[in-house]
């Protein structure tokens, strides 16, 4: 196959993934409730819009500890004892989840909706 064919393929992949990627990551978080999961299980949830005073919440995972800083409409991982502390660098939770991989910890905003309402 000619080289320029490959160039086109790779260029297309780059363009598409870049656009999709940026769109996905700049989405505004929908909903007010932050959910904290360890190993896929919900360990903590908080309605960020109802938070008055900022506070720290410690999550003890079987793999290590993370400290969450929770304020009104804001949540971030403030500290962790994982090797690279990449989770701390992720900053505030925006559209995409906060992750501490070594600790299997994920913080995400979930939509507030329900599948049906009982009344």
């Amino acid at each position: 196959m000619k080289t320029w064919v490959w160039v086109v393929i790779v260029a297309v992949i780059l363009a598409v993934s870049l656009t999709v990627g940026v769109v996905l990551l700049t989405r505004q978080p929908q909903g007010n409730v932050a959910y904290v999961y360890v190993d896929g299980e919900l360990v903590y949830q908080v309605d960020l819009s109802k938070v008055d005073q900022p506070y720290l919440y410690t999550v003890n995972t079987p793999y290590g500890t993370n400290v969450l800083e929770i304020a009104k409409d804001s949540i971030r991982i403030a500290d962790a004892d994982c090797p690279h502390k990449e989770c701390v660098e992720q900053g505030r939770l925006k559209g995409s989840p906060l992750v501490c991989l070594p600790h299997r910890l994920v913080v995400k905003i979930a939509e507030d909706d329900a599948d049906s309402v009982s009344r």
């Binding site: 909706d113 329900a114 599948d115 049906s116 309402v117 009982s118 009344r119």
Partner: peptide, 25 residues
Amino acid sequence: LLNLGGNVVAIGAKPDGTPYRIAVK
């Protein structure tokens, strides 16, 4: 999922295995 005048009936779980999220008004 059924909602009969406010009576909610969940049949199984959602296709991906996660539970239905049912709100109470």
